[in-house]
Simulated assay, not measured.
Amino acid sequence: MGHTRVVTLTLNPALDMTVRADGWQQNTVNSGQDMHLNAGGKGVNVASFLADWGVNVTATGLLGRENASAFDTLFRAKHIEDAFIRVPGSTRVGVKIVDHARQQTTDINLPGLTATPELLQALEAKLAELSANHDVFVLAGSLPPGIESDYYAKLVAQLRQAGKFVALDTSGPALNAALAADTLPNLVKPNNHELSAALGKELNSETDLLDAAHNLLKRGVELVVISQGEEGALLVTPGDIVKARPPRVQVVSTVGAGDAMVAGLVAAHLDRLSLAAAARRATSFSVGNITRLGAHLPPRAELDDIAARVDVSAIRPADPLKV
């Protein structure tokens, strides 16, 4: 088959400036220990992790011409096919202040370049072209100014109609619109808060979360993954529910942990893994990433070791859920 080809779409990429400043205080002068500038944005991160795992991946989206060199370097180094539309201006910078002493990360996200109707037309032509020889599409991250909140919902409908497997990882109005649409993605990965906001009700217990997940499954989603941070994740399909709890590790940076989980879920889909095995792989990607700076996976042997230490338990609901 050649390998199944994956496209990641990042409409709002960012240059991630990660500054390490242990014990920093607001409203005063602080000392920083070091700084890294990484090509980022959720879909770019997903592509980076998939490339580390050996998956053929193409990255597309909108990228500012003026500061694209970090992206060019990443794509070359990891053999990621670059299908980004270059746009005038600079890609936004996202500032992350990492405090190792407190194990905390503070994010400051700036708005992206405004997308014009012409750029969106060019992007849609590019997606149609990629659709000819790619089977899996990962739509990830926030929408930049100039794009309506239902844009992902429209793309999901087009791609699923074309028979593609679509994973969506976004939040806020873009997620709310996508989950309210008639055609839903195959895979969604909200956290508790995002799912509560999207469905417009507080989900306080595991039962509430599972009911919400089953509501999405009834409407056409194949896999709902509810990420719960260091508690792990719930993975729900029409026939199965598992909870994955990660092993404890020394956290270097949590930047990209959610994107690593999405990459692990896509890699599991490509290999047709069982739900429990998918939970192990996705968690191992996420845990492996937080032991590193930037969107990089450790070597396979280390990932296999982490996967073996993930605690995966099947959940049997008290009363069988009606799907």
Results as ranks from 00 to 15, higher is better:
residue 238 P to D: 09
residue 202 E to Y: 03
residue 226 I to G: 02
residue 202 E to V: 04
residue 249 V to C: 06
residue 238 P to N: 15
residue 176 N to L: 15
residue 200 G to C: 13
residue 184 L to D: 10
residue 248 R to P: 04
residue 222 E to L: 15
residue 230 E to I: 04
residue 187 L to K: 14
residue 244 A to K: 01
residue 232 G to K: 02
residue 218 K to L: 13
residue 232 G to N: 11
residue 227 S to P: 13
residue 176 N to Y: 14
residue 187 L to V: 01
residue 183 T to E: 13
residue 199 L to G: 11
residue 203 L to W: 05
residue 235 L to I: 03
residue 176 N to P: 10
residue 256 G to R: 06
residue 200 G to D: 08
residue 210 L to F: 08
residue 242 V to F: 03
residue 214 H to I: 00
residue 211 D to L: 08
residue 233 A to V: 12
residue 250 Q to I: 04
residue 178 A to C: 07
residue 176 N to D: 01
residue 186 N to H: 11
residue 186 N to I: 09
residue 256 G to H: 06
residue 197 A to P: 05
residue 236 V to P: 12
residue 212 A to I: 07
residue 195 L to W: 00
residue 202 E to I: 06
residue 223 L to A: 07
residue 189 K to M: 07
residue 254 T to R: 13
residue 199 L to Q: 05
residue 224 V to G: 14
residue 216 L to P: 09
residue 203 L to R: 03
residue 258 G to R: 14
residue 190 P to V: 11
residue 175 L to C: 09
residue 228 Q to C: 12
residue 186 N to T: 14
residue 236 V to A: 11
residue 177 A to V: 14
residue 239 G to M: 00
residue 256 G to C: 03
residue 227 S to Q: 11
residue 234 L to T: 06
residue 188 V to M: 11
residue 246 P to M: 10
residue 258 G to V: 08
residue 183 T to I: 15
residue 215 N to T: 03
residue 252 V to G: 06
residue 201 K to T: 10
residue 188 V to G: 14
residue 249 V to I: 09
residue 246 P to G: 03
residue 216 L to I: 04
residue 215 N to W: 00
residue 259 D to W: 09
residue 236 V to Q: 05
residue 211 D to C: 03
residue 261 M to P: 05
residue 224 V to H: 07
residue 202 E to N: 13
residue 227 S to K: 11
residue 220 G to K: 07
residue 184 L to I: 11
residue 259 D to N: 04
residue 257 A to V: 01
residue 250 Q to C: 09
residue 177 A to E: 15
residue 211 D to A: 05
residue 175 L to I: 02
residue 205 S to F: 00
residue 250 Q to F: 00
residue 259 D to A: 03
residue 234 L to Q: 06
residue 229 G to L: 09
residue 213 A to Y: 01
residue 215 N to H: 04
residue 194 E to V: 07
residue 230 E to W: 04
residue 232 G to M: 13
residue 196 S to Q: 02
residue 176 N to Q: 14
residue 257 A to D: 06
residue 190 P to W: 07
residue 200 G to V: 12
residue 227 S to H: 10
residue 204 N to D: 14
residue 213 A to T: 08
residue 237 T to S: 05
residue 188 V to C: 10
residue 217 L to I: 11
residue 235 L to V: 03
residue 251 V to N: 02
residue 192 N to E: 06
residue 222 E to H: 13
residue 222 E to S: 13
residue 209 L to T: 01
residue 186 N to P: 05
residue 255 V to E: 14
residue 208 D to W: 12
residue 195 L to T: 06
residue 242 V to Y: 07
residue 190 P to N: 14
residue 234 L to P: 06
residue 180 A to N: 12
residue 196 S to R: 00
residue 216 L to R: 06
residue 249 V to Y: 04
residue 176 N to S: 15
residue 211 D to I: 08
residue 249 V to D: 02
residue 220 G to W: 01
residue 200 G to E: 09
residue 253 S to Q: 10
residue 212 A to N: 12
residue 220 G to P: 10
residue 185 P to C: 13
residue 200 G to N: 06
residue 225 V to F: 00
residue 192 N to Y: 00
residue 196 S to W: 00
residue 250 Q to Y: 02
residue 175 L to Y: 04
residue 220 G to C: 08
residue 237 T to L: 02
residue 261 M to G: 01
residue 187 L to Q: 15
residue 218 K to V: 01
residue 182 D to R: 10
residue 179 L to E: 13
residue 255 V to W: 03
residue 211 D to Q: 14
residue 193 H to W: 14
residue 179 L to Q: 05
residue 208 D to R: 07
residue 185 P to W: 15
residue 205 S to A: 11
residue 234 L to S: 08
